[in-house]
C-alpha cells in the first residue's frame, strides 16, 4: 500500500487523483489517497509521496501560505527533512518547488519563469523526449500557460526535453515537470511516483 498526499490548494487536482488511481491499478499497487489542505492534514496523513498539481501559484501561496492554511511551509519543511521522499510537481508545482518563498532552500536547484511561453493561445501539445522514468523515451506533452526553466542546474538531472529545451528535471526523488502528465493518457510519471514510494518504503 502507498499513502499519497495530494495538495488540494487550487487547480487541476481531480485529474491527478484519476491518473494516480489508473497508475495504481496498472502497477497492481493499493493506493491510499489523502487530500492535503492544511498543515494538520499533512501531519495526520504522513504521506509517502506528494503530488503538487498545476493551477495558479498566486492563489496557492495565499490559500496555503503561513497566513492561510499553513500547508505550504509545513509541506516544504516535510520535504526538506527527507530528500528521499518522492515528489511530483507539475506546472505551478514546479514554481513552488523552485521558489518556495518560505525562507528555506529551494526543493530543486534549477530556476523557473512563470507563464513564459505567453498566453493561453500559446499553450501547446508536443511529443517530448524523456529519460530515466518508465520504459519509453517519448511522452505526449501538454503545456498550458506553462512556466519555463530559466536556468538548469548541473545538480538536477534532466528527465524531459521538448526540442532542445529542458521541460522536466529531477533532484533526487523530486520530479519537476513544466507540462501536465495528468492530462495525457500516459501514466508513466504517476506510476514512477507510486513505484518510487513503494521502493523507499521497503528499502
Amino acid at each position: 500500500m502507498v499513502r499519497i498526499g495530494l495538495v488540494m490548494l487550487q487547480g487541476a487536482r481531480h485529474v491527478h487523483a484519476t491518473a494516480l488511481k489508473r497508475a495504481a491499478e496498472q502497477a497492481g499497487v493499493e493506493l491510499e489517497l489523502h487530500e492535503l489542505r492544511t498543515d494538520a492534514d499533512l501531519f495526520a496523513c504522513q504521506p509517502e509521496a506528494i503530488v503538487l498539481p498545476g493551477g495558479e501559484t498566486t492563489t496557492m501561496r495565499l490559500t496555503g501560505g503561513a497566513e492561510g492554511s499553513g500547508l505550504l511551509p509545513a509541506l516544504f519543511a516535510w520535504m526538506r527533512a527527507d530528500p528521499t521522499l518522492p515528489v511530483l510537481g507539475t506546472c505551478a508545482g514546479v514554481i513552488l518547488l523552485a521558489d518556495p518563498q518560505d525562507g528555506g532552500e529551494p526543493l530543486i536547484h534549477s530556476s523557473i519563469d512563470r507563464n513564459a511561453y505567453g498566453r493561453q493561445q500559446d499553450s501547446f501539445q508536443a511529443e517530448l523526449g524523456i529519460s530515466g522514468v518508465g520504459d519509453s523515451n517519448t511522452f505526449p506533452g501538454v503545456f498550458i500557460r506553462a512556466p519555463r526553466f530559466a536556468d538548469i542546474s548541473a545538480k538536477d538531472k534532466i528527465v524531459a526535453t521538448h526540442q532542445e529545451e529542458v521541460v522536466g528535471v529531477r533532484n533526487g526523488a523530486r520530479l519537476a515537470l513544466t507540462f501536465h502528465p495528468e492530462l495525457s493518457d500516459d501514466p508513466t510519471f504517476h506510476r514512477w511516483l507510486l513505484e518510487a514510494a513503494l521502493l523507499r518504503a521497503t528499502a
Partner: peptide, 20 residues
C-alpha cells in the same frame, strides 16, 4: 511540430481554474 488550440488544451486550461 506543436499543436495549439486543441480541445484538450482548452478543457485543460479550465481545469487549472478548479477551486478558484
Amino acid at each position: 511540430t506543436m499543436r495549439h488550440g486543441t480541445t484538450l488544451l482548452k478543457r485543460g486550461f479550465a481545469k487549472m481554474q478548479e477551486g478558484g
